[in-house]
Design a protein around this nucleic acid. Structure first.
Length: 602
RNA sequence: GGGGGUGUAGUUGAGCUGGUUACAACGUCGCCCUGUCACGGCGAAGGUCGUGGGUUCGAGUCCCAUCACUCCCGCCA
């Protein structure tokens, strides 16, 4: 059998009269009795193959092509010819020609597929995941995987041209208790001990800096045993980057150029660099989240001042300092000129939608003609407070103002952050996936610590190797004012999606020791968990920092799709199952016994 | 761990306030057809209505439980 001479996507008028050999899948058979057409498909396109009695004789047409069914894999040989006058198919790249088949070989037959590959028919994801290898034959998924490939290729070339070296780090590594839950792997040679799959190559890439690699990157597989979301899978891939002797701005510039290159190559779009920067604090107070979608307004407005002396109990208690000395706030979002679009029921629905964030109520104010305010809490508003609202918010008739008051400031902001997204979607301000412009944004100066009420101690917001900003260094070493301490930590955000996250690291062992002390981790504990790393810090560590980008999120945006499953070849369901291979699965008793393990299911 | 949504031929859906044999399109199978490309014509097969229980004379439809998928909260340094 000769191998194929062409793909199914490349023949056109130039090839007329040529003898060609094509291979591919039968997409469609159109049997006219005397004449049979086959659409032959491979990943490059579709070519029409015709079985013509004037070439073959009437009986051979059926002998050859009559047995063909959808998704059979065939080899066929024939001559390229022009289609008859007026018979060209404009919708097909190869639509001007057809291949008149003279020799056919069925390479493999196929059962009837569980779902149709053609068209945009929305087949249940359960079925698609069970037969992922068939779903992969569809154009959409192939296109996404090819885009993913191109992104990785561009990233490698870009980073290589900037002196970065790709280094592979182990998948079997050490469990690090801070942070996400580890996937653990039992060791046969050392029974009772376990490797962990890396949540990220964090310590390893820092060790590479200590090792003098200076500029490292890796297309790194990462594993986190946490619950799944549309944008979270248990295993995923990061563009992992670490550099020495580079400022935050220096690193930002590299990332910006890389993104700009990707947008040019993949989407042929120019993005403006440098990207905007915004502190975490500003982002929280204006947008109620650390990954704001800047494609629309509806920003949060703080009107605590207006109600500083309110007689309304809800407002009073919101503004009363709590035990830990913090006050809550009264903030809201102004929806200009659209109050009539929100019925009482709509407003109730909004309230219930954001109630999961902890807000006890959503208070609304509608502005009527003559700037009369209408609200369920209207009777609690004094005339001066009403006037204060009108002036502060520059209210106009038919405006709607949605307010939340709570003693916990973060509840107010996070609830309004969620409300903002709901309103944005409802008012049609958020373009569909793949539409609209790309609003990149650096969020900087994340808090270094986060207080955990349950555990009664501070945790590292990013990770325990993140350095404090210089202004807070003295307090940091003195373990003072940890609550309000900023970190040299940053995220790259695009249209409300966190694309990547990084920081400048601690590179002095005394500072690292102070970090563990601030986290309430004893010296012994730190030595046990990170001893090798702490020791390494003592042998001449360059100032270093880095970032990691989630490839799936990045590619999903570039492909204009929502769930990252659509840019992964073999994704898992929300319960972490692979419906195709039916993993995870039980193992043989012998396997367990070799590992010295017993199963004890509660 | 919690909340919302979905589940009916192979696939996508319809099925009203409970009422004969559960319906359509596409797909599949058979026969016919020489210019189709969403080919066409005639015919056929195909169902544990996710699963289990309950209410009822009677359940795809109502109730309870459960499972799967999905979206979200918690979680994800």
């Amino acid at each position: 059998m000769e191998h194929r001479t062409h793909t199914c996507g490349e023949l056109d008028k130039k090839h007329i009269q040529e003898e060609v050999t094509l291979c591919g899948w039968v997409t469609k058979r159109r049997d006219h009795g005397g004449l049979i057409f086959i659409d032959l498909r491979d990943r490059y396109g579709i070519t029409q193959v015709v079985f013509d009695p004037t070439l073959l004789g009437g009986e051979s047409v059926h002998e050859l092509a009559g047995k063909l069914r959808n998704e059979y894999v065939i080899w066929c040989h024939g001559k390229v010819r022009s289609r008859p006058e007026g018979m060209a198919n404009e919708k097909l790249k190869t639509g001007a020609i057809e291949v008149a088949c003279t020799k056919l070989d069925i390479l493999s037959e196929a059962k009837t597929l569980p779902f149709l590959l053609e068209g945009d028919s929305q087949v249940a994801e359960t079925v698609r995941l069970k037969y992922r290898y068939l779903d992969l034959r569809r154009k959409a998924l192939q296109k996404n995987l090819i885009t993913r490939h191109k992104v990785i290729l561009e990233v490698r070339n870009f980073l290589d041209s900037h002196n970065f070296v790709e280094v592979e780090t182990p998948i079997l590594y050490k469990s690090t208790p801070e942070g996400a839950r580890d996937f653990i792997v039992p060791s046969r040679l050392n029974q009772g001990t376990f490797y962990a799959l890396p949540q990220s190559p964090q310590t390893l890439k820092q060790l590479l800096m200590i090792g003098g690699m200076d500029r490292y990157f890796q297309i790194a597989r990462c594993f986190r045993d946490e619950d799944l979301r549309a944008d979270r899978q248990p295993e995923f891939t990061q563009i992992d980057i670490e550099t020495s002797f580079l400022s935050e701005e220096g690193l930002f510039a590299i990332c910006e150029n890389m993104m700009s290159k990707l947008w040019k190559v993949i989407l042929n779009q120019d993005v403006k660099i440098p990207f905007q920067r915004m502190s975490y604090k500003e982002s929280m107070s204006r947008f109620g989240c650390d990954k704001p979608d800047l494609r629309f307004g509806l920003e949060i407005q703080d009107i605590s001042q207006v109600f500083a002396n309110s007689s309304f109990q809800v407002f009073q208690s919101a503004l009363t300092p709590t035990v830990r000395g913090k006050k809550g706030s009264i903030c809201g979002i102004l929806v200009p000129g659209q109050a009539e679009k929100f019925s009482r029921k709509d407003l109730d629905d909004l309230q219930s939608q954001i109630s999961v964030f902890g807000a006890k109520g959503l208070l609304w104010v509608k502005v009527q003609d003559g700037l009369v305010l209408k609200s369920p809490a209207e009777k609690f508003f004094s005339d001066s407070e009403k006037q204060g609202l009108i002036t502060n918010l520059n209210l106009k008739p038919n405006d709607l103002f949605l307010m939340i008051a709570d003693q916990k400031d973060h509840v107010v902001l996070e609830s309004l952050g969620a409300l903002r997204l709901i309103l944005g979607a409802r008012l049609g301000l958020i373009p569909a996936h793949g539409q609209g412009k790309s609003e990149f944004l650096w969020i900087t100066r994340f808090p270094l610590f986060e207080y955990d009420e349950k555990e009664g101690r501070y945790f590292a917001k990013h990770h325990p190797f993140t350095s404090p900003v210089p202004e807070h260094f003295e307090d940091f070493m003195a373990a003072k004012n940890l609550e309000n301490m900023d970190a040299n930590a940053y995220d790259l955000v695009l249209n409300g999606v966190e694309l990547g996250s990084g920081s400048l690291r601690i590179y002095r062992s005394d500072i690292q020791a102070a970090m563990f002390k601030n986290l309430g981790i004893s010296q012994e504990e730190a030595k046990l968990k990170f001893g090798f790393f702490l020791e390494a810090l003592q042998y001449g560590t360059p100032p270093h920092g880095g970032i990691a980008f989630g490839i799936e999120r990045l590619v999903a945006i570039l492909c204009g799709v929502g769930p990252i499953r659509d840019v992964m070849a073999f994704p898992k369901t929300q319960k972490g199952h692979c419906l195709m291979s039916e993993s995870p699965s039980t193992v043989l008793p012998e396997q367990l016994s070799e590992l010295g393990l017993n199963i004890k299911i509660k």
